[in-house]
Amino acid sequence: MAAPRFDELIHASTRLSIMAMASAGKGVEFRFIRDELGVSDSVLSKHLGALEAVGYITVHKESIGRGWRRTLVDITEEGEAAFQGHVAALDAIIGRTERHGPETGGQAPGGVRGGGSEHAGSDPGTVPRES
């Protein structure tokens, strides 16, 4: 199991969904992601660009004959590690609350602090949020 590491960049709902799909499948098509998320091409492109810029995913085009091309998204090893770490951090947040009760504060196991955006960049290696 990956060490918990909260990652602000992929915590945004759309990016987390993209990472989840890319982690589950190899060569996930742009069109499939767009339809699943119900977002426009431009919005998805922006999120993919942000994830690609930090090396979490690769985006490449593939010819499927007769001049047709499709865009495929693959997660990188670095992206997979960040995604698994983030999922572990989310699990840790839930585990912390279940152990301490719903109104208890404190720090999550593995040095993970909270789940909200106000904790951006609180852990070593945390990627800052992009607009």
């Binding site: 915590h11 987390l16 989840a20 589950a24 989310l90 839930i94 719903p102 909270g114 789940g115």
Partner: peptide, 26 residues
């Protein structure tokens, strides 16, 4: 509590997306 709910919602979203990918493969 708020963080826990947010984390739960995020994990639900992750599972939903992974199920979508599995369904598409299937």
């Amino acid at each position: 509590m708020e963080h826990e709910q947010e984390a739960r919602a995020a994990l639900d979203g992750v599972r939903r997306m992974q199920t979508s990918v599995e369904g598409e493969l299937n």
